[in-house]
């Protein structure tokens, strides 16, 4: 009996300690102005993906991240800070990107992030810089042809923790079992190992995977609209506006199309003419 009381006491103390810690932890976002800070340091720190072909992928040769989003981020940095502006890149995953932004480790997220009402409660988005749609990647010859084929008991869909597509698939194929891996490299590996029938995420990402893995195809067309935006912390209105202006400028000058063509021009299944701005 004495032991039980002591145990309850310990647990109560523990819970009390944790609640105190939690309430300290919930500090408001930094009230600094990201734009002024960036201008001072002449650097913008971007969170980018490093496991996503075409958008942001680690190049093993020189240990640098390369892709459409990296090039867009560089172009935007030059527009905002002038031609000497430095773009710094921090590798993020769908799971780590919002905490890192909220913590101020990064100034903006340009990492295949769809603008959704849910996320707009946490972060602010710029205008869309790429219009994706959710699709499926399957093994060639798979009986899965579209998202309806997945909506059966016994089918398994693979996705990535923290991505928008895992929420959507719950609506379009509620009967399928959903496995969430920690990044796209893991998810693709799991698909190849037969851990799931299909991998679902945005078509742009899937095209990149299909290009590299000849045994796999993108099927069923897109069943959602996924406009990608750059996420900044709430309240950083000046920074967001300057990014929007910069985006409009590179769209007008043709730099956007040049970058789009560089990465997506030769991707089978991707319609460059439709996507250019």
């Amino acid at each position: 009996m004495k032991k039980i009381i002591r145990y309850i006491g310990v647990m109560a103390a523990l819970c009390a300690a944790l609640i105190v810690l939690t309430s300290c932890g919930a500090k408001p976002l930094s009230e600094q102005n990201v734009l002024t800070n960036s201008e001072k340091s002449n650097t913008i720190t971007w969170g980018v993906k490093a496991d996503t072909k075409l958008f942001g992928l680690m190049d093993i040769k020189d240990n640098r991240i390369k892709g459409f989003e990296v090039d867009i981020a560089k172009a935007l940095t030059k527009q905002v800070l002038g031609s000497k502006g430095q773009a710094k890149f921090v590798q993020v995953t769908s799971q780590t990107r919002i905490p890192l932004l909220a913590n101020g480790n990064i100034d903006g997220i340009i990492a295949t992030m769809t603008i959704t009402p849910e996320r707009e409660k946490q972060v602010d988005f710029t205008n869309s810089y790429f219009d994706a749609g959710q699709a499926l990647l399957v093994k060639k010859g798979s009986p899965i042809h579209n998202v309806k084929d997945l909506n059966q008991k016994g089918k398994t869909v693979l996705g990535v923790v923290g991505s928008n597509s895992v929420e959507n698939i719950g609506k379009y194929a509620p009967k399928a079992r959903l496995l969430q891996l920690s990044d796209y490299a893991q998810a693709l590996t799991a698909l190849k190992s037969g851990q799931g029938d299909a991998l679902t995420t945005d078509n742009g990402i899937l095209y990149g995977m299909a290009a590299e893995n000849p045994g796999y195809v993108v099927v069923g067309g897109t069943f959602t609209e996924e406009p990608y935006g750059i996420a900044v912390n709430q309240g950083q209105t000046e920074f967001r506006q300057s990014l929007n202006t910069a985006l409009a400028k590179i769209e007008k000058s043709g730099e956007y199309n040049r970058i789009l063509k560089k990465w997506f021009g030769n991707v089978p299944g991707f319609n460059y003419e439709e996507a250019k701005r």
């Binding site: 093993i60 590798q91 799971q95 920690s182 490299a185 693709l188 590996t189």
Partner: peptide, 19 residues
């Protein structure tokens, strides 16, 4: 899981690009 570029991470990057 927090993207430490250690040997495990780099291995995953390599086999993620060519399975």
């Amino acid at each position: 899981i927090i993207v430490l570029p250690d040997v495990m991470h780099n291995t995953q990057i390599v086999y993620g690009q060519n399975t």
